[in-house]
Design a protein around this nucleic acid. Structure first.
Lengths: 136, 136
DNA sequence: CTTCATGCAAAACATTTGCAGCTGG
DNA sequence: CCAGCTGCAAATGTTTTGCATGAAG
Protein backbone atom coordinates (compact mmCIF):
# COMPACT_ATOMS: atom_id res chain seq x y z
CA UNK A 1 0.00 0.00 0.00
CA UNK A 2 2.70 2.40 1.06
CA UNK A 3 4.71 1.43 -1.97
CA UNK A 4 1.82 2.30 -4.25
CA UNK A 5 1.44 5.72 -2.64
CA UNK A 6 5.12 6.55 -2.94
CA UNK A 7 5.24 5.21 -6.47
CA UNK A 8 2.66 7.78 -7.57
CA UNK A 9 4.19 10.62 -5.56
CA UNK A 10 1.45 10.91 -2.98
CA UNK A 11 2.65 12.20 0.35
CA UNK A 12 2.88 9.93 3.36
CA UNK A 13 1.30 11.97 6.12
CA UNK A 14 0.74 10.68 9.65
CA UNK A 15 -3.02 10.79 9.10
CA UNK A 16 -2.80 8.71 5.96
CA UNK A 17 -0.49 6.28 7.66
CA UNK A 18 -2.92 5.83 10.53
CA UNK A 19 -5.85 5.25 8.18
CA UNK A 20 -3.83 2.81 6.10
CA UNK A 21 -2.93 0.82 9.17
CA UNK A 22 -6.52 0.54 10.27
CA UNK A 23 -7.72 -0.52 6.84
CA UNK A 24 -4.94 -3.01 6.31
CA UNK A 25 -5.24 -4.54 9.74
CA UNK A 26 -8.97 -4.73 10.28
CA UNK A 27 -10.84 -7.82 9.27
CA UNK A 28 -14.11 -6.27 10.38
CA UNK A 29 -14.99 -4.26 7.25
CA UNK A 30 -15.24 -0.94 9.10
CA UNK A 31 -17.46 1.97 8.13
CA UNK A 32 -16.11 5.46 7.50
CA UNK A 33 -17.25 6.56 10.91
CA UNK A 34 -15.65 3.59 12.65
CA UNK A 35 -12.40 4.37 10.90
CA UNK A 36 -12.75 8.01 11.92
CA UNK A 37 -13.32 7.11 15.57
CA UNK A 38 -10.37 4.75 15.57
CA UNK A 39 -7.99 7.20 13.92
CA UNK A 40 -8.88 9.82 16.48
CA UNK A 41 -7.81 7.63 19.39
CA UNK A 42 -4.27 7.68 18.11
CA UNK A 43 -4.29 10.92 16.14
CA UNK A 44 -6.97 13.16 17.67
CA UNK A 45 -6.80 16.13 15.31
CA UNK A 46 -7.78 14.12 12.22
CA UNK A 47 -10.89 15.39 10.48
CA UNK A 48 -13.66 13.40 8.88
CA UNK A 49 -12.95 15.07 5.55
CA UNK A 50 -9.45 13.68 5.58
CA UNK A 51 -10.75 10.19 6.20
CA UNK A 52 -13.09 10.53 3.24
CA UNK A 53 -10.36 11.94 1.04
CA UNK A 54 -7.92 9.21 1.97
CA UNK A 55 -10.43 6.46 1.33
CA UNK A 56 -11.31 8.00 -2.02
CA UNK A 57 -7.63 8.00 -2.88
CA UNK A 58 -7.17 4.37 -1.90
CA UNK A 59 -10.25 3.40 -3.88
CA UNK A 60 -8.71 4.99 -6.97
CA UNK A 61 -5.52 3.04 -6.41
CA UNK A 62 -7.57 -0.16 -5.99
CA UNK A 63 -6.12 -0.72 -2.56
CA UNK A 64 -9.45 -0.82 -0.80
CA UNK A 65 -12.80 -2.37 -1.68
CA UNK A 66 -15.94 -0.36 -1.06
CA UNK A 67 -19.05 -2.18 0.08
CA UNK A 68 -22.15 -0.02 -0.19
CA UNK A 69 -25.48 -1.13 1.21
CA UNK A 70 -28.97 0.07 0.30
CA UNK A 71 -29.47 1.47 3.80
CA UNK A 72 -26.71 3.96 3.01
CA UNK A 73 -23.95 2.47 5.09
CA UNK A 74 -20.65 2.12 3.30
CA UNK A 75 -18.02 -0.22 4.64
CA UNK A 76 -14.49 -0.93 3.51
CA UNK A 77 -12.24 -3.91 3.06
CA UNK A 78 -8.57 -3.07 2.93
CA UNK A 79 -7.10 -6.48 3.66
CA UNK A 80 -8.36 -8.03 0.46
CA UNK A 81 -9.16 -5.38 -2.14
CA UNK A 82 -9.98 -7.71 -5.01
CA UNK A 83 -13.65 -8.62 -5.37
CA UNK A 84 -14.75 -11.65 -3.42
CA UNK A 85 -18.00 -13.05 -2.05
CA UNK A 86 -19.35 -11.93 1.31
CA UNK A 87 -21.75 -13.52 3.76
CA UNK A 88 -23.52 -10.75 5.66
CA UNK A 89 -25.56 -11.25 8.81
CA UNK A 90 -28.79 -9.28 8.56
CA UNK A 91 -29.03 -9.08 12.34
CA UNK A 92 -25.56 -8.29 13.72
CA UNK A 93 -24.00 -7.18 10.40
CA UNK A 94 -21.04 -9.47 10.77
CA UNK A 95 -19.31 -10.18 7.47
CA UNK A 96 -17.45 -13.33 6.47
CA UNK A 97 -15.25 -13.83 3.41
CA UNK A 98 -15.23 -17.50 2.46
CA UNK A 99 -13.44 -18.86 -0.58
CA UNK A 100 -15.87 -20.14 -3.15
CA UNK A 101 -15.04 -22.25 -6.15
CA UNK A 102 -16.57 -21.61 -9.59
CA UNK A 103 -16.71 -17.81 -9.32
CA UNK A 104 -14.71 -17.45 -12.50
CA UNK A 105 -17.00 -19.87 -14.29
CA UNK A 106 -19.98 -17.81 -13.19
CA UNK A 107 -18.38 -14.62 -14.42
CA UNK A 108 -17.60 -16.31 -17.72
CA UNK A 109 -21.18 -17.54 -18.06
CA UNK A 110 -22.44 -14.04 -17.38
CA UNK A 111 -20.15 -12.64 -20.03
CA UNK A 112 -21.22 -15.23 -22.57
CA UNK A 113 -24.95 -14.67 -22.00
CA UNK A 114 -24.91 -10.88 -22.04
CA UNK A 115 -22.02 -9.95 -24.29
CA UNK A 116 -20.64 -7.74 -21.53
CA UNK A 117 -16.92 -7.58 -20.93
CA UNK A 118 -16.81 -8.16 -17.18
CA UNK A 119 -14.19 -6.34 -15.10
CA UNK A 120 -15.24 -6.99 -11.56
CA UNK A 121 -18.18 -8.20 -9.49
CA UNK A 122 -19.96 -7.95 -6.22
CA UNK A 123 -21.39 -11.07 -4.63
CA UNK A 124 -23.25 -10.77 -1.34
CA UNK A 125 -25.28 -13.37 0.48
CA UNK A 126 -27.57 -12.16 3.26
CA UNK A 127 -28.71 -14.29 6.15
CA UNK A 128 -28.21 -15.15 9.81
CA UNK A 129 -24.77 -15.98 11.18
CA UNK A 130 -24.42 -19.02 13.46
CA UNK A 131 -24.48 -16.94 16.66
CA UNK A 132 -27.62 -15.04 15.68
CA UNK A 133 -29.35 -18.27 14.67
CA UNK A 134 -28.86 -19.59 18.20
CA UNK A 135 -30.37 -16.53 19.78
CA UNK A 136 -33.72 -17.43 18.24
CA UNK B 1 -49.10 -6.17 -6.88
CA UNK B 2 -52.51 -4.57 -6.58
CA UNK B 3 -53.82 -7.74 -5.03
CA UNK B 4 -51.14 -7.60 -2.37
CA UNK B 5 -51.97 -4.01 -1.52
CA UNK B 6 -55.68 -4.69 -1.22
CA UNK B 7 -55.05 -7.84 0.74
CA UNK B 8 -53.33 -5.84 3.46
CA UNK B 9 -55.82 -3.00 3.41
CA UNK B 10 -53.58 -0.39 1.86
CA UNK B 11 -55.40 2.21 -0.15
CA UNK B 12 -55.18 2.31 -3.91
CA UNK B 13 -54.59 5.97 -4.65
CA UNK B 14 -54.01 7.34 -8.15
CA UNK B 15 -50.43 8.20 -7.20
CA UNK B 16 -49.71 4.69 -6.01
CA UNK B 17 -51.32 3.25 -9.08
CA UNK B 18 -49.15 5.38 -11.34
CA UNK B 19 -45.97 4.39 -9.49
CA UNK B 20 -46.94 0.72 -9.54
CA UNK B 21 -47.48 0.84 -13.27
CA UNK B 22 -44.09 2.38 -13.90
CA UNK B 23 -42.31 -0.11 -11.69
CA UNK B 24 -44.12 -3.11 -13.08
CA UNK B 25 -43.70 -2.07 -16.70
CA UNK B 26 -40.16 -0.77 -16.79
CA UNK B 27 -37.36 -3.10 -17.64
CA UNK B 28 -34.84 -0.31 -17.20
CA UNK B 29 -34.32 -0.46 -13.43
CA UNK B 30 -35.28 3.17 -12.86
CA UNK B 31 -33.99 5.41 -10.08
CA UNK B 32 -36.28 7.19 -7.66
CA UNK B 33 -35.86 10.41 -9.56
CA UNK B 34 -36.60 8.79 -12.90
CA UNK B 35 -39.78 7.33 -11.43
CA UNK B 36 -40.67 10.73 -10.02
CA UNK B 37 -40.20 12.46 -13.37
CA UNK B 38 -42.27 9.84 -15.13
CA UNK B 39 -45.12 9.93 -12.62
CA UNK B 40 -45.31 13.68 -12.96
CA UNK B 41 -45.93 13.51 -16.68
CA UNK B 42 -49.18 11.73 -16.06
CA UNK B 43 -49.98 12.92 -12.56
CA UNK B 44 -48.25 16.28 -12.12
CA UNK B 45 -49.09 17.01 -8.49
CA UNK B 46 -47.27 13.95 -7.15
CA UNK B 47 -44.54 14.75 -4.64
CA UNK B 48 -41.16 13.17 -4.28
CA UNK B 49 -42.00 12.18 -0.71
CA UNK B 50 -44.90 10.10 -1.96
CA UNK B 51 -42.66 8.28 -4.40
CA UNK B 52 -40.26 7.45 -1.60
CA UNK B 53 -43.07 6.33 0.68
CA UNK B 54 -44.63 4.15 -1.98
CA UNK B 55 -41.36 2.49 -2.83
CA UNK B 56 -40.67 1.86 0.84
CA UNK B 57 -44.06 0.23 1.11
CA UNK B 58 -43.48 -1.99 -1.91
CA UNK B 59 -40.09 -2.97 -0.56
CA UNK B 60 -41.74 -4.14 2.65
CA UNK B 61 -44.21 -6.19 0.67
CA UNK B 62 -41.33 -7.67 -1.35
CA UNK B 63 -42.86 -6.43 -4.56
CA UNK B 64 -39.84 -4.46 -5.62
CA UNK B 65 -36.12 -5.13 -5.46
CA UNK B 66 -33.81 -2.34 -4.37
CA UNK B 67 -30.43 -2.07 -6.02
CA UNK B 68 -28.11 0.27 -4.16
CA UNK B 69 -24.77 1.29 -5.59
CA UNK B 70 -21.71 2.63 -3.79
CA UNK B 71 -22.01 5.96 -5.61
CA UNK B 72 -25.30 6.50 -3.80
CA UNK B 73 -27.66 5.85 -6.66
CA UNK B 74 -30.51 3.53 -5.80
CA UNK B 75 -32.44 1.84 -8.56
CA UNK B 76 -35.45 -0.43 -8.50
CA UNK B 77 -36.62 -3.57 -10.20
CA UNK B 78 -40.35 -4.13 -10.02
CA UNK B 79 -40.74 -6.64 -12.81
CA UNK B 80 -38.77 -9.34 -11.06
CA UNK B 81 -38.58 -8.73 -7.33
CA UNK B 82 -36.78 -11.92 -6.37
CA UNK B 83 -33.00 -11.69 -6.21
CA UNK B 84 -31.22 -12.40 -9.46
CA UNK B 85 -27.86 -11.62 -11.04
CA UNK B 86 -27.27 -8.37 -12.89
CA UNK B 87 -24.77 -7.30 -15.51
CA UNK B 88 -24.16 -3.58 -15.12
CA UNK B 89 -22.40 -1.40 -17.69
CA UNK B 90 -19.93 0.87 -15.94
CA UNK B 91 -20.17 3.40 -18.76
CA UNK B 92 -23.84 3.75 -19.76
CA UNK B 93 -25.30 2.07 -16.63
CA UNK B 94 -27.43 -0.30 -18.65
CA UNK B 95 -28.49 -3.36 -16.67
CA UNK B 96 -29.19 -6.83 -17.99
CA UNK B 97 -30.80 -9.72 -16.11
CA UNK B 98 -29.60 -12.99 -17.59
CA UNK B 99 -30.54 -16.38 -16.23
CA UNK B 100 -27.57 -18.15 -14.72
CA UNK B 101 -27.43 -21.82 -13.78
CA UNK B 102 -25.69 -22.88 -10.53
CA UNK B 103 -26.82 -19.93 -8.38
CA UNK B 104 -28.47 -22.22 -5.87
CA UNK B 105 -25.36 -24.37 -5.68
CA UNK B 106 -23.31 -21.27 -4.98
CA UNK B 107 -25.68 -20.20 -2.23
CA UNK B 108 -25.53 -23.67 -0.75
CA UNK B 109 -21.74 -23.69 -0.84
CA UNK B 110 -21.69 -20.31 0.88
CA UNK B 111 -24.00 -21.60 3.58
CA UNK B 112 -21.90 -24.71 4.13
CA UNK B 113 -18.63 -22.82 4.41
CA UNK B 114 -19.81 -20.07 6.74
CA UNK B 115 -22.58 -21.65 8.76
CA UNK B 116 -24.87 -18.77 7.78
CA UNK B 117 -28.51 -19.42 7.01
CA UNK B 118 -28.85 -17.60 3.69
CA UNK B 119 -32.12 -15.83 2.90
CA UNK B 120 -31.29 -13.81 -0.18
CA UNK B 121 -28.38 -12.56 -2.22
CA UNK B 122 -27.11 -9.85 -4.45
CA UNK B 123 -24.98 -10.73 -7.44
CA UNK B 124 -23.67 -7.94 -9.65
CA UNK B 125 -21.14 -8.11 -12.45
CA UNK B 126 -19.64 -4.85 -13.66
CA UNK B 127 -18.22 -4.27 -17.09
CA UNK B 128 -18.81 -2.84 -20.56
CA UNK B 129 -21.96 -3.66 -22.49
CA UNK B 130 -21.60 -4.60 -26.19
CA UNK B 131 -22.52 -1.09 -27.43
CA UNK B 132 -20.03 0.64 -25.16
CA UNK B 133 -17.29 -1.80 -26.16
CA UNK B 134 -17.72 -0.78 -29.78
CA UNK B 135 -17.39 2.90 -29.01
CA UNK B 136 -13.76 2.37 -27.99
C1' DC C 1 10.58 26.52 -0.96
C1' DT C 2 6.91 24.80 -3.43
C1' DT C 3 3.28 21.92 -3.72
C1' DC C 4 0.11 19.20 -1.84
C1' DA C 5 -2.63 17.73 2.29
C1' DT C 6 -5.18 19.04 6.26
C1' DG C 7 -9.05 20.80 8.88
C1' DC C 8 -12.74 23.63 9.32
C1' DA C 9 -17.17 25.16 7.91
C1' DA C 10 -20.39 25.48 4.51
C1' DA C 11 -22.57 23.27 0.62
C1' DA C 12 -24.59 19.59 -1.73
C1' DC C 13 -27.31 15.46 -1.93
C1' DA C 14 -30.55 11.98 -1.14
C1' DT C 15 -33.85 10.46 1.98
C1' DT C 16 -37.00 10.93 6.02
C1' DT C 17 -40.23 13.14 8.97
C1' DG C 18 -44.02 16.21 10.99
C1' DC C 19 -48.11 17.88 10.17
C1' DA C 20 -52.34 20.14 8.17
C1' DG C 21 -55.61 19.14 4.85
C1' DC C 22 -57.63 15.96 1.59
C1' DT C 23 -59.79 11.59 0.02
C1' DG C 24 -60.62 6.64 -0.68
C1' DG C 25 -63.44 3.03 0.93
C1' DC D 1 -67.30 9.71 8.12
C1' DC D 2 -62.54 8.99 9.49
C1' DA D 3 -58.17 6.34 9.13
C1' DG D 4 -54.63 6.80 6.32
C1' DC D 5 -52.48 9.15 2.35
C1' DT D 6 -50.65 13.31 0.15
C1' DG D 7 -47.76 17.28 -0.39
C1' DC D 8 -45.14 20.71 1.48
C1' DA D 9 -41.25 22.20 4.00
C1' DA D 10 -38.10 21.44 7.35
C1' DA D 11 -34.93 18.06 9.43
C1' DT D 12 -31.58 14.51 8.97
C1' DG D 13 -27.42 12.10 7.79
C1' DT D 14 -23.75 11.41 4.84
C1' DT D 15 -20.39 12.80 1.61
C1' DT D 16 -18.16 16.65 -0.92
C1' DT D 17 -16.09 21.17 -1.59
C1' DG D 18 -13.64 25.78 -0.98
C1' DC D 19 -10.17 27.82 1.08
C1' DA D 20 -6.63 29.40 4.39
C1' DT D 21 -3.02 27.34 7.00
C1' DG D 22 0.49 23.94 7.72
C1' DA D 23 3.70 20.24 6.65
C1' DA D 24 6.16 16.87 3.37
C1' DG D 25 9.68 16.18 0.26
Amino acid sequence: MLAKLRERDFRITPQRLAILKILAASRRHPSVDEIYQEVRTEFPTTSLATVYKTIALLKELNEVLELGFPDGSNRYDGSNPSPHPHAICVRCKKVMDPELVNIDALSEEMSRKTGYKIYHHRLDFFGLCPECQEKH
